[in-house]
Design a binder for these strands. Structure first.
Lengths: 225, 225
DNA sequence: TTCATTATGTGTATTATTTACACAAAAATA
DNA sequence: TATTTTTGTGTAAATAATACACATAATGAA
């Protein structure tokens, strides 16, 4: 019965946000197959590590990043998705603040870089499909879970939050209504700090209050933008 | 590099609906480990079959069922989830009309049965966790995708639909508002047929119009109950 | 046959939510 | 000090969600 010879990998679709652009973290493969092509960070799962550990390890090895938001995305098992044979991949979805890490290509990666999601290179394996699914997940999830804060500084002006949402959702947002709605969720603390970038009126800084968010969830209140 | 010895299984959390009750399809294991215990149908993926094929094959082998709604649920990779060693399982979520199949236990199953989701036996492996996640998926998904029709007869009185929703969601539903809302979605065809079960006014039969549903989705109209 | 019972089918008024929309305030810059 | 830029704020109108009751068409019992 035990002639199974399927190998298992993990791949990570990691997104970052900066100045009105969502980027995906990609590596250029050092080895065959698809040597020299861009791909998602990832690799074979070791026998004695959990799937999450595997993703985090591969991400750190290949890109230098340590991620703090990671969730499972989907598993890909098409028969011919990998020229080396039968390889099933469990893909993860991650978020990170790009400015908090210096990218360092190593092990299987000969290069690492952020690519705007509207300017992606062609990708190895079925990674295009994975990335597309991850982008859909980001768009959908940001409306019903407070994952956007993983992409912003800890303290941020309200306009950053608004710009993030309009970037991810790909449409304009009514500034007044958005603010009203978000503040109505009661998960933001307004700080006694102001920030002034260039011209214009200085903005108040806000901070996501996770404790309060969990409390509201427990009370059955739903987060929805 | 290739000392990987992880094996891959698929498991299926399949639900059926009858007379105000949601049931899950379980098998009693014929072999070790967990011999004699109830578990989700499933088993090892063969080298030359896709993940979906594997689930459908295992389901048919062990229970006699051929499923028509199946989607991936989640992948489970905890180090100690299987006493045989490192086994990662990709779980699927399925829906079926219980009355359209006769259950036939075979291969790894010594018995097959439907269990009401509020009267589940203890389960092998981490199948309790998988089933819990699947129930959550069912509850969530029925509100934003028309999967409920997979559980009803092709032609059904409106009261069946209403009862299904109140069963799955676990709360009362206002009959008039529910009907108004659902008919407003324009995905039901009202037939020129009536059905009379026992006493009471005979009900008109309805039918889900999938073509129309896809058309509305394409137009960007959202299904939401 | 008629009276009681059971389930279906329907509309409106009230409340809550969403949307559309414009100008003053605080700073930088010319 | 006048202009430009960005932040901060309220209200009215439209839409959606909720609460709620009685007539209709059948069965079954008296």
């Amino acid at each position: 019965m035990n002639t199974q010879s399927i190998r298992l990998t993990v791949d990570a679709a990691v997104f970052g946000y900066e100045e009105g652009h969502i980027s995906a973290l990609l590596i250029r493969r050092k080895y065959e197959p698809f040597k020299g092509q861009w791909a998602l960070p990832g690799g074979f799962v070791l026998n004695d590590e959990s799937l999450e550990d595997a993703v985090e390890r591969e991400l750190h090895e290949e890109t230098g990043i340590k991620i703090n938001y990671l969730e499972q995305l989907y598993s890909y098992g098409n028969l011919n998705r990998d020229p080396r044979g039968r390889v099933v991949s469990i893909a993860y979805f991650g978020l990170v603040r790009p400015d908090t890490f210096k990218l360092i290509a190593s092990t299987d990666a000969q290069e690492v870089a952020w690519f705007g999601i509207h300017a992606l290179p062609s990708l190895a394996f079925d990674h295009k499909e994975i990335l597309t699914m991850a982008i859909d997940r980001l768009k959908a999830k940001i409306t019903y879970q407070p994952i956007g804060f993983e992409l912003l500084d800890k303290k941020f002006p309200f306009s950053d939050l608004e710009k993030l949402y309009s970037t991810v959702l790909g449409r304009d947002i009514d500034r007044r209504n958005f603010r009203k709605k978000f503040l109505g969720l009661k998960v933001l603390d307004e700080l006694d700090e102001k920030i002034s970038k260039g011209s214009g009126r200085p903005a108040n800084l806000f901070q996501f209050n996770q404790k309060r968010y969990f409390q509201l969830i427990k009370e059955g209140i739903v987060f929805e933008i």
